[in-house]
Simulated assay, not measured.
Amino acid sequence: MSTTNRQIHLVSRPQGEPTADNFKLVESAVSALAPGQVLVRNHYLSLDPYMRGRMNESKSYAQPQPLNEVMIGGTVGEVVESRNEHFKVGDKVVGYGGWQEYQLVDATQRGVLQKVDTTHIPLAAYLGAVGMPGVTAWYGLVKIINPKAGETVVVSAASGAVGGAVGQLAKVRGARAVGLAGGPDKCRQVVEELGFDECIDYKQHPDVKSLSAALKAACPNGIDGYFENVGGKILDAVMLRANAFSRIAMCGMISGYNGEPIPMQAPQLILVNRMKIEGFIVSEHMDVWPEALKELGTLVATGKLKYRETVADGLAAAPEAFLGLLKGKNFGKQLVKLI
């Protein structure tokens, strides 16, 4: 009996803010395995802000998501059939299976599928704290900001999968961690659960002047490092409080993902403060992934790196969960449970 695979395709490009109509749920039969192939039953799907940029046809660091094909996305799951000597039925694996329940993989291609150990680390964590978001946090903090003990690191979207890890990794290195998040509940979680020193609710500060004053109160010694996920008025406010020789890791600019302009009010501060501003894409730095994952895995396994997950149930829920992610409705890592 053939296995039916359910997938979600991107069927149209968003004009501004995306809607559920940009996606379509389709079904197809899983093909018989060829030599070297592996069939994976995906258990969890990762939803991430970068997917919004890939839905556009505009120039970016990666190719646009093709129309009428499975939406891209990281997945974890279990091998249910194998014609590859390196993978056996029951192996837990992480890969980029996309928005679908089953993934047929040519496992002879190096790196497309990685076996993971779930003895001390939950399978879903390999899509968050011990996966791409965690390594993103690690790279931006360690390789770009490189905080010294006693310095102050500010993180936007601090309650998200990346931002939450940044602050905790900064604390491990003896730095002071100040987060920015939307709403009192998220700010409370960032301080009480994740261990940040302070968290500012940016929704309480409608303009740059007000937000800059809040940052001044939270960062009396100025800002030495900033991990950027948002852009817009938050970046402007941070730059007004930045110290000489401060460093900014440019990870995301979610305030402009729907095509909104993102002007910078005072770019002269880059020169005045001799700031280092560096954008990065974590997939271009695979050489550091083993080092990053070793630290992240150890911290998670020993309970020293905390994380939260928001889980949508079933593949059909993925589009609405993704739209909610773009509006900041999730706490921590946004996942879709597929089994």
Rank of each mutant, 00 (worst) to 15 (best):
I200W: 09
G256S: 12
G231I: 11
K203L: 15
A242R: 02
M264D: 04
L235R: 00
L194P: 12
G225M: 05
M264A: 08
V190F: 15
F245C: 10
Q268A: 11
I200Q: 11
I200S: 11
A217R: 15
S246D: 05
P263N: 08
V208E: 15
N258H: 14
V238E: 05
F245I: 01
P267C: 11
I270L: 15
N243S: 12
I248A: 04
V208A: 05
D236T: 04
G259I: 06
M239W: 03
M250H: 07
D224W: 00
F196Y: 15
L211H: 02
M250W: 12
A218H: 00
E193D: 14
I262D: 02
C219T: 11
C251H: 07
N229Y: 07
G256Y: 11
Q189S: 14
E228T: 06
I223T: 04
M253F: 15
E228G: 13
M239R: 04
P267M: 09
I254H: 03
G195F: 12
A217Y: 00
V208L: 05
I262C: 03
Q268T: 09
Q204Y: 13
G222L: 01
H205T: 04
S212W: 01
F245Q: 11
G222M: 03
A266K: 13
V238H: 13
F196Q: 09
C219E: 01
I270P: 10
E260T: 06
D197G: 09
S246T: 06
P261W: 08
N243I: 06
N221E: 14
G225F: 03
E198F: 07
D224C: 06
L240M: 10
S246M: 07
F227D: 00
S255H: 07
V208T: 15
V190L: 11
K233S: 13
